[in-house]
Design a protein around this nucleic acid. Sequence first.
DNA 1: GATAATTAGTTACAAATGAAACTAAGTCAA
DNA 2: TTGACTTAGTTTCATTTGTAACTAATTATC
Lengths: 166, 166
Amino acid sequence: MSDVETSERSETVPGDAGDFDLESFFPYLVRVYYRSVSESVTSIYATLFGLSVSEWRAMAVLGTDQAMSASELVARSSMDKVNVSRAVQGLRKGGLLKRDIDGDDRRRSVLRLTEKGRETLRTLVPLVRKLEEELLEGLSSDERDTLIRLMEKVRKNADALRRTPH
Amino acid sequence: MSDVETSERSETVPGDAGDFDLESFFPYLVRVYYRSVSESVTSIYATLFGLSVSEWRAMAVLGTDQAMSASELVARSSMDKVNVSRAVQGLRKGGLLKRDIDGDDRRRSVLRLTEKGRETLRTLVPLVRKLEEELLEGLSSDERDTLIRLMEKVRKNADALRRTPH
DNA sequence: GATAATTAGTTACAAATGAAACTAAGTCAA
DNA sequence: TTGACTTAGTTTCATTTGTAACTAATTATC
């Protein structure tokens, strides 16, 4: 028995649920897009270096500005404090990060990469830069700007919605 | 490449890890963007209807084409078979989906929404359509097309990279 | 037609993630 | 001071998600 239905198929009314097409639904496209991009970066820092997303992000942020507390890291990485805490744990375990206690406020940590951490980052950064370029290959400079600008615009819309629930 | 620094701020050398800025790193922007968009849709199907992402997607796909097997669902929803299996379980438990066995091939399932499922979808679809519109508010028709086109282009680049590992 | 190889779907286990409770330290106000 | 409140960061527990192994049914091969 093949699944030949006694066709009620064209009974859908426009605006109805029936003609909803997931594959052209914008949030679905965003998810598929994100997944592909995400996987490509992950293949570098995870597969090649055994880092988690949080660990990679923490390293990237700590690479620029030298030392900072966990809460500064939270502010600059859009991770929550739990993830930061776990990233710090993981990086310390791997000898990539050193944690000291702030003398002025002993609740605060002072986080900085170790030499090994900086060395790892020096290897990693050119690779992710290359990947970034490869992701954007075939897009003109204008298109890149446009893409980023439009993503930003949509993101702001989304964040505004969150604050104004239905 | 225009991001060639001539001046050495502090001790960082151009192309070095030191001047890497996570907050302008493209995959990071994609993640932040995705998170915001994702959360806004989730607030509808999860918060209002108690559905998981997979469940929502399965319903959306099954809403259009009447009945299909789990593997067809896999093909149309970019979920893997485990997630589809779980979504089916969850939807059945909620009485939103009915599973029969295909007579021709008894490994195959024949999945279709129940009347309750269709009714839920009828309520849900206008809400997610409205959300989609709100996300894209302020973008012209051209900008919407451009955004989708560029995301698609980047996604293809990313997928090509996956098949050509470094 | 027996048996090897595929395919559909499920289950089981491990790792990742999120929310909430918790500990420790610091601030404020009396 | 002392007690209430806030802040920094960690731990715990429940949920989600991903990978791999598995069962059952079908197809291919000899």
